[in-house]
Design a binder for these strands. Structure first.
Lengths: 219, 219
DNA sequence: CATAATAGACTAACCGGTCGGTATATTATC
DNA sequence: GATAATATACCGACCGGTTAGTCTATTATG
């Protein structure tokens, strides 16, 4: 038992190092083409050490997905946790954060959750479910922020926040996918822009036209 | 008794059969997890025969992507080639066609182009480029239809058709992805619905008030 | 010293691709 | 029009490299 105290034990550090390098490799090459030998070489550990910390490649995959989900969602939550901004400003901050995450990799690696989802979801139900949960949480984050926009009168009263949040997640993931395939950041940026534009020019219904979200020019 | 006239030769039929079964397998399991042995067993041919028709697995992958691109795009073009419908009706028909293609597979297999794109684009530049071309063509199809809507007064004069077409493709591919991951058709349907809704309530400016509802253009 | 952690040789299965060979059609030659 | 020559199509055993995972031995660490 080397576990007492608050400091991270050596084993925990090793495990984290393995997950970190595995994440980079799987982000770059996908799950199947990332071999255990790749991972241990990158992390500087041996086979025996690896299999002391992980029982299988699948368990490593789970750890990678878990860590990536937490990393991404915490960055998004951080972007939304800005009391100094209006609800709309916070959504914008969140979208920019996504854009930043993707552009850190030149848009050429896409989104690790989307990548692993499409590659492995038919063979690894546990991967699939964990990733589905991350997308659901992301959508809920957006939806609750849209609710706040609505409460602040920045959206029409009949605006369907949940549906639009799902739509935004789809448009973003799709944009990231097309950016990866075309090696061009503009599809993803275009998704960000057009999502933002939906919110741009709704005017608090002064009394006459509460029904439609208008789309007049703004900016 | 071959070769004469327009009939397909025996070799061509075999090749097509191989591609067809390979497409189903790669749609289901992805590229890496589809083995040549899988393909030849499904198509009922032997290794030797396979390697007579294809020089490598990669060449098979190209053939699958090519065939899938043509198949999908031709179905979309067909849906758009309906002179009896209004431009908006044609877009709706195309979206329903996409929905149909995906729901034929219970939404659980996603889109074969998107799947292969995310799995292989970092290792197979030729796959990536061919798929990028298909997405580009799809977007152009939508954009030109939006142009017709605009000409028919169903969209504001400053509507940015190209940007919106890209956005629609992103939202659809993203919706298909989320539907695959969640095994639930609603995210994809939601994308279809919200795309259609964008067009729903623009009213032709009745000569006196030409700027009532318009959207900003450009980026 | 007990156990956590590391070391790395080894294995068994898998998989893409090869190779020598066969069968059947098409074309060339006399 | 018989036959030789060639091209097309197919057959399946086999090979070599790769890969996930195992096993036994050894070294830190509390």
């Amino acid at each position: 038992m080397a576990r007492t105290g608050s400091a991270e034990s050596k084993g925990e550090r090793t495990r984290r190092r393995i997950v970190g390098h595995a994440t980079l490799l799987m982000y770059e090459k996908g799950y199947a083409r990332t071999t255990i030998d790749d991972v241990i070489a990158a992390a500087g550990v041996t086979k025996g050490s690896f299999y002391f910390h992980f029982s299988s490649k699948e368990e490593l995959g789970c750890a990678v997905i878990e860590a990536a989900s937490e990393h991404i969602l915490s960055r998004l939550r951080e972007a939304l946790d800005r009391p100094d901004l209006s609800p709309r400003g916070r959504i914008e901050a969140m979208l920019k954060e996504i854009q930043g995450i993707v552009e850190e990799a030149d848009c050429s690696r896409g989104c690790i959750l989307g990548n692993l989802a499409l590659e492995t979801s038919s063979s690894h139900p546990d991967f699939r479910e964990r990733i589905a949960k991350a997308f659901r949480e992301w959508s809920e984050l957006i939806a609750s922020e849209l609710q706040e926009m609505k409460a602040a009168g920045e959206l029409p009263a009949d605006f369907d926040c949940a549906a639009y949040a799902d739509f935004a997640v789809s448009a973003l993931e799709g944009g990231i996918m097309i950016s990866k395939v075309t090696r061009d950041p503009s599809p993803m940026r275009n998704s960000v822009d057009l999502i933002l534009r939906q919110f741009e020019d709704y005017k608090k219904p002064d009394r006459d036209n509460p029904k439609t979200i208008s789309r007049r020019k703004g900016r």
